[in-house]
Nucleic acid binder design. Structure first.
Lengths: 96, 96
DNA sequence: TGATGTAATCAATCAAACTTGATGAGACGT
DNA sequence: ACGTCTCATCAAGTTTGATTGATTACATCA
């Protein structure tokens, strides 16, 4: 997992929304499109970005493709943020 | 804290680098500039983005301004990711 | 085979973000 | 008051990313 790529992928409103919807279970593109009310082409573009960031999995089934979260990637992102959340407290310890 | 804004702010290579450097302690802009080897104007622009995302604190001292991480914002970002890391496992449970 | 439905890709346009160099605002020392 | 230092801001140019509509690929069903 590359933290920068994952963070950039999640830094788009629609892509973050997609991730939050997929957190409730896997969905095919058409269901996602109905849930979010966006055009198929647009959705496919953002799914590709999320997929290339390794944040989601795709599972073809017949003529549908089901997408789901790659939960381990999100767990890895969490642990990447750990040292930033546990950094030394800001400023106060340095004043006298 | 707004997760989207924070994620977008961290989705830039230089800004993520800034955050990682600041995790080791607060620094003034000039020291950051030396550490990272970037122009002052460019650095100031990205510090502003991080500041507006509430990811860093600034502490003026004389003619210097010291920047440090807002560790609670990173902790909040971590807990925002929690449900995405704990989502139902992908696909396997649905096949038979 | 032909028609339909799902989804990826492409090319073109549009919008947003980044970079650069210059200027401006304050704080400091002489 | 003047020059200098640190940093923020501005405007212009460039680059990158997102949206749209059309096309393509593939699977399904009649």
């Amino acid at each position: 997992m590359t933290p920068l790529i994952a963070l950039r992928a999640l830094g788009d409103p629609l892509r973050l929304q997609i991730a939050l919807v997929l957190a409730r279970g896997e969905l095919c593109v058409c269901d996602l499109g109905e849930h979010l009310g966006v055009a198929q082409s647009r959705l496919s573009f953002h799914l590709r970005v999320l997929r290339e960031a390794n944040l989601i999995h795709s599972r073809p089934d017949g003529r549908w493709i089901y997408y789901s979260l790659n939960t381990t990637a999100f767990a890895e992102l969490q642990s990447f943020l750990q040292p930033l959340a546990n950094s030394l407290p800001p400023s106060r310890e340095r004043c006298l």
